[in-house]
Design a binder for these strands. Structure first.
Lengths: 206, 206
DNA sequence: AAACATTGTTGACACTGGTAACTTTGTCGC
DNA sequence: GCGACAAAGTTACCAGTGTCAACAATGTTT
């Protein structure tokens, strides 16, 4: 009764070990093709051991993706400036943190939004994904209240913001936007365009 | 000597047959896990036959993705209005056509931007992808020349536009933006936000 | 300590991508 | 016409995968 649902019994904390092994591979192996057997191998267990902790391969993928969303959300709230004096000052660091998360964890980020495994992954993590969405939503809502953001349907604005940053992140991961090659100019310009679209036009801000 | 590089010889036009079979599966099978053998099966040939026409599985994937980009570009130029009277009138139909292409061919669209197969797919289709990019670039360039679009780095604007539409398309494919469920409101609102970010602010357009 | 559930291992199955050897078929030089 | 040759398709095989069933070992409970 004093045990949490999943707890180590007789070997070690294998469930956690598997997850961490997988995350590690996700981090280091650039081109990662996920194989349960390889994870088991690196975790030092037999190829069937994971099945005692995950019903199937997809379940592990889902777990990893959810962890990814949690970490992304953490990264965003951490990047949120304490006392932003303008919309751009608030949006920019968050956006950069988002893109940075993606480029720092390309395989994980891809997994989070992947349709691999027959869309099964995406089906299960709506709440986590929406938690990220809510960060944006909240920010925009306060912006509208403060009068710095256009009065439009917030959900549409949030969708636009998320889609744009998400798209940029993917482009960056794919190397179509590599900072070393092209500088961060397009990235910041794109963010500026987003801000222009959200902010109420100032006389001198054309 | 009078033969083109790949021409049918003794059975039929298998190369084309394989591609079309694959495209067909891509179209109908919602959750598609690509297997060369299944394609061969449906094409009515043995599982090793495709290897006479494609060096490996990835090569076929690349071919399919390139076809996808070609079709996407066609869809965009077809959707471009003949005589748009405003930026929004020009951007909106193109954007909708883009998203529609994605939601109509989800598996194909995913494949085009997929990192599956170890990024190998994306490496080969830069030109085709950039052809799509150029459609956007061209439109924005003319907009700037005509004085309807803010004078900013065009590439940044184009990146923003593409990223946003791309991101929306993915969200739509993932069902986070299903039109039946939520109406097309967020979609259009997001496009409006994009337009706001691109267009030179009008006095009455807050 | 004996019964039991948990967790791990071994061995099998069907499937995949890929290669090699073989057979069929069309093309070409004579 | 006809044999040599190359193209295109087939069968047989390999290693590797996801998954499952049977079994062995360990910890928990009474």
């Amino acid at each position: 009764m004093q045990a949490t649902p999943h707890r180590p019994y007789h070997h070690g904390d294998l469930r956690r070990a598997i997850i961490e092994t997988a995350l590690d591979m996700l981090r280091t192996e650039k081109d990662w093709q996920f194989t349960l057997r390889e994870v088991a191998r690196r975790a030092g267990v037999s190829h069937a051991a994971p099945y005692k902790h995950f019903p199937d391969r997809t379940a592990l993928l889902v777990e990893l993706a959810m962890i990814g969303f949690d970490r992304l959300r953490e990264a965003l709230v951490k990047a949120k400036p304490a006392a932003p004096r303008s919309l751009l000052e608030e949006i920019t660091p968050i956006s950069l943190a988002y893109v940075a998360f993606g480029t720092d964890n390309p395989a994980l980020y891809r997994l989070m939004f992947s349709a691999e495994e027959g869309r099964a992954v995406g089906m299960h993590l709506d709440q986590r994904a929406l938690a990220v969405f809510d960060v944006v939503l909240d920010m925009l809502g306060r912006g509208q209240a403060a009068g710095t953001i256009r009065k439009r349907p917030v959900r549409g604005q949030a969708t636009a913001a998320w889609a744009l940053i998400h798209g940029i992140t993917l482009l960056a991961i794919d190397g179509l936007l590599v900072p070393e090659k092209v500088g961060s100019a397009p990235l910041e310009a794109a963010i500026a365009t987003l801000v222009d679209g959200l902010a109420i036009p100032q006389p001198n801000t054309n």
